[in-house]
Design a protein around this nucleic acid. Structure first.
Length: 580
RNA sequence: UGGGGAGUGGCCAAGCUGGCAAGGCAACGGACUUUGAAUCCGUUAUUCGAAGGUUCGAGUCCUUCCUCCCCAGCCA
């Protein structure tokens, strides 16, 4: 069965591709992912590249990697390798089809000459300011350049001398001769080539003194590579007539450009300029800071490639502007890691728990399930002893309503160990609880109650003598409003509490040989990933995404209700006062 | 204002030639639970930007209007 019969038309692009195959406009599917090497790839690029590579894959076609490196003033080799790493990480391959628009400069130059000879391009001596001033406005047509009607011979001569580096930057351009009165401003004699002497190009050094503009490079590069479907974002829609004009005038193979809406995610910024600013100003530690929406940042944070591919498929492909909830991205990660991450016990904010009736010299090895979602993941041994650490928030001396964790007189289960009952606390001079005391029920080894009594709460724990110290980095969203780019200054919307470093954590011994990049679920808390900074001497974990937390929600509602009640009381008091 | 696009629940998004408004995320109930997780079950659009019209029947067709986004780089 052929591709057009088997691929499900899940979106309007796939639908269009199927049509093209049916109609015979194209017989194969060939796409390309065209990053400009001027920054790191982010989640928005991930959407684009998953569409590009994904559609090629679906139809049994190919997708090229092509760097859109036509502007040496913005590009750098630094980004080239990083981009490749990110694409591979997402699971795609371009085999040996790693291309550069700059490799086509000789052909592009010849194409320009073809257009000059046809009278479709001319060298313009106007300054950038003059070009801008004569472009017209949205409602008024532009003015034709005084150099628009030069002879072909003169144009050829001048263009060659531009190439030979005879003129300074900005003194001349090669322009397409189209229509200065077009309603589409992109068609008002767009610049095809500009003169740039510095800095050197990342691949061709100072070999070129003229560089093609995007519009004169992209379509022809697609054509040269035999790309059938050139998929890009909505802002290029108005460029399509120009894309097609060049191909038509050049009489070369014409790919089809199709535009889709780029991805926006709430609580995050996506523009390369802003991401660069965050890095340069030190608001984050680098492009791969776990709070960044870059692919290297997400990877370091603990995101899996699969979760990002899943995210891309769930957000779909359409033409309407969108703002996707970051909660969806997080949900995708949770779903993946819930299935695959091994469970471990880690106490982030330790509180000492002493089991008074447990022998001081006794140590037991408890069998703990590695992943209840995956029986094949087996079990591990965790050491249990008299002095333990539990989470501070798992104990309350005076329990709030609905709290069923540990408090004086209450019974809870210690995961895979014993059922214990809180008997009292020890406080310091300031009245802070520094130690909790309890007794254990020796008949409940493993956590089961032989008498069948129901224990509502199960806590995670570590043995004080056997646990190993670790640092845990808790991340929150980098911005504190859903539309950080909306105001004057997006930096003003930075969340000052996006990073919390906990350096007193205690984790179970089985985590000792953790390698950077390993992911775990720390039971009852979230999914964590060993950071690049992690070493056997000092383990460092990043919070990738927290588990859903109904309890915090209940608490927040209670507090809100309480505050609301306070306000009402205040008002009534005030009103009474005035009335008296 | 010229040109080009887009409007379906809180957020994405199906819905093609007119025939009972998919699904996911979020939210909210409940069941279950040795993770307040996961899982399961249920609830949430008499209405599709608005108003008219055609039709037995309109998110889908027609008309008018409204709102939002992109384009005036020698950026991509």
């Amino acid at each position: 069965m052929s591709a057009e019969e088997t691929v499900k038309p899940t979106d309007f692009i796939r639908e269009a591709v199927i049509e093209d195959l049916k109609s015979g406009r194209f017989t194969t599917v060939h796409t390309r992912f065209p990053p400009e090497p001027n920054g790191y790839l982010h989640i928005g690029h991930a959407k684009a590249l998953i569409i590009d590579f994904g559609i090629a894959q679906d139809f049994g076609g190919l997708c090229n990697l092509r760097y859109d490196d036509t502007n040496p003033t913005k590009e750098d080799v630094e980004y080239v390798d990083a981009i490749k790493e990110d694409i591979q990480w997402l699971g795609f391959t371009w085999d040996d089809r790693e291309y550069y628009a700059s490799d086509y400069f000789p052909q592009l130059y010849e194409m320009a000459i073809t257009l000059i000879k046809k009278g479709k391009a001319y060298v313009d001596d106007q300054s950038p300011e003059e070009v801008s001033a004569t472009r017209g406005t949205l409602t008024e047509p532009g003015k034709e350049s005084p150099w628009r009607n030069r002879s072909v011979g003169e144009n050829l001569d001048l263009f060659e001398r531009m190439k030979n580096g005879e003129f300074p930057d900005g003194t001349r351009t090669l322009r397409a001769r189209i229509d200065m009165a077009s309603g589409n401003i992109n068609l008002r004699d767009p610049v095809m080539y500009r003169i740039i002497h510095e800095p050197p190009h990342h691949r061709y050094g100072t070999q070129w003194d003229i560089y093609p503009m995007y519009d004169f490079a992209h379509g022809q590069s697609d054509s040269i590579e035999g790309v059938t479907h050139s998929l890009c974002s909505l802002e290029y829609e108005a460029h399509r007539p120009l894309y097609e004009w060049f191909l038509r005038e050049l009489e070369i193979f014409a790919p089809r450009q199709i535009e889709f809406a780029r991805l926006n995610v709430n609580y995050t910024v996506m523009s390369k300029r802003k991401l660069l600013k965050l890095v340069q100003d030190g608001h984050v530690k680098g492009w791969d800071d776990p709070r960044m929406p870059t692919l290297c940042g997400l990877r370091r944070r603990g995101f899996t490639a699969g979760s990002i591919r899943d995210f891309a498929s769930r957000i779909g492909v359409a033409k309407a502007d969108n703002m996707v909830d970051v909660a969806l991205l997080e949900a995708c990660l949770r779903e993946d890691l819930n299935q695959h991450a091994l469970r471990r016990m880690a106490v982030l904010r330790p509180l000492k728990l002493v089991i008074d009736n447990y022998p001081a010299d006794r140590v037991e090895e408890m069998d703990v399930v590695n992943n209840p979602e995956d029986p094949g993941a087996g079990t591990r041994k965790v050491q249990f002893s008299k002095v333990l650490y539990i989470e501070q928030e798992d104990f309350q001396e005076v329990p709030p309503p609905k709290y069923y964790r540990l408090f004086p007189g209450n019974e809870v289960r210690l995961r895979a160990a014993y059922i214990i009952k809180c008997t009292g606390v020890v406080k310091d001079d300031k009245g802070e609880v520094i130690e909790v005391h309890a007794t254990y029920d020796s008949a409940t080894r493993g956590g089961d109650a032989p008498d069948g009594r129901k224990i509502k709460s199960t806590l995670h724990w570590v043995s004080a003598a056997h646990a190993i110290p670790a640092e845990v980095r808790l991340y929150d969203r980098l911005f504190n409003r859903p539309d950080p780019e909306a105001g004057e200054d997006f930096l003003a919307n930075i969340n000052p509490n996006s990073l919390t470093v906990l350096d007193q954590c205690r984790v179970e011994g089985s985590l000792a040989d953790t390698q950077a990049g390993d992911r775990f679920q720390f039971e009852r808390q979230g999914y964590f990933c060993a950071d690049l900074d992690s070493t056997p001497e000092k383990l460092v974990f990043n919070l990738a995404v927290a588990l859903k937390d109904t309890w915090t929600k209940i608490e927040q509602k209670r507090k809100q209700a309480f505050n609301g009640l306070l306000r009402k009381t205040d008002k009534r008091t005030t009103a009474d006062g005035l009335g008296a």
